[in-house]
């Protein structure tokens, strides 16, 4: 059963003289537990598509339905709450809160969800241990390498037990070793905890790990292939 339904999604920018169709009539569905990659050249519209799936950007037309909820029908604050409860984000530039430690960054999401303190503490430690950072709980982002920061970001994305995780170019700033470590962690989480991951990437190493590869160009889906592993 699909947890995400993207219907006729279009995003047109009118900032330039000629309107730019960043996403043009996209229809997609994602099932629980998928490990999918949206690929395409720079400017193809993959990040815009991902942002709309995550409810960060409003479409010009069309809809994104998550578990039966049309996200863009929600009010601004309800949409933020919806994201908090259902979607995890991993950004290219890690985007950890610089004044919080690794542990506090992960806890931050659960605190916004008003989770119980004990439960929060246990889950945070377990998540950071699962991304190999059990010994760096009290390190601030500036005391961690890029790869470590991105692993904290993954732990943070999973903290809220989201329905799916959106990762926009998560490996773009990482070296090969860190990339492989990160991908392995996400693969394990996908396999063992059935967490849905959707990547926007042009990193072949990510594509190689994906079970489904969606190619986008000029805002349109060019191909949508399942890859047997």
């Amino acid at each position: 059963m699909s947890i995400i339904k993207v219907k006729n999604l279009t995003k047109t920018y009118h900032d330039t003289e000629v309107p730019v169709h960043a996403v043009n009539g996209v229809n997609l569905e994602f099932k629980k537990g998928e490990f999918s990659a949206i690929v395409g050249p720079s400017g193809s519209g993959k990040t815009t598509l991902l942002n709309m799936i995550g409810g960060l950007e409003h479409p010009s037309s069309g809809m994104v339905e998550v578990n039966g909820t049309d996200m863009f029908e929600l009010s601004s604050s309800a949409l933020i709450e919806f994201r908090l409860m259902n979607i995890g984000f991993v950004f290219q530039a890690y985007n950890l809160i610089p004044v919080l430690t690794a542990k506090e960054n992960v806890e931050f999401i659960m605190q916004l969800q008003n989770k119980d303190k004990k439960q929060m503490n246990e889950r945070t430690i377990s998540l950071l241990e699962s991304v190999g950072l059990g010994d760096r709980l009290n390190s601030r982002p500036n005391q961690l390498s890029g790869g470590q920061q991105q692993r904290v970001a993954v732990a943070r994305a999973l903290a809220s037990k989201p329905m799916f995780v959106l990762a926009d170019e998560p490996t773009a700033n990482l070296d090969s070793k860190a990339t492989m470590q990160l991908l392995e962690i996400m693969e394990v989480l996908n396999r063992e905890e059935n967490i849905t991951f959707i990547f926007a990437t042009h990193d072949q190493r990510v594509v190689d790990k994906a079970h489904r590869v969606i190619t986008i160009d000029d805002g349109k889906i060019i191909s949508d292939e399942s890859v047997s592993k």
């Binding site: 995550g54 604050s77 409860m85 931050f108």
Partner: peptide, 16 residues
């Protein structure tokens, strides 16, 4: 601005 945007993306209400 970027940090604020990240926090809102993650689910922090703007009022908070």
């Amino acid at each position: 601005t970027r940090e604020f945007s990240v926090m809102v993306s993650l689910g922090m209400q703007k009022t908070k």
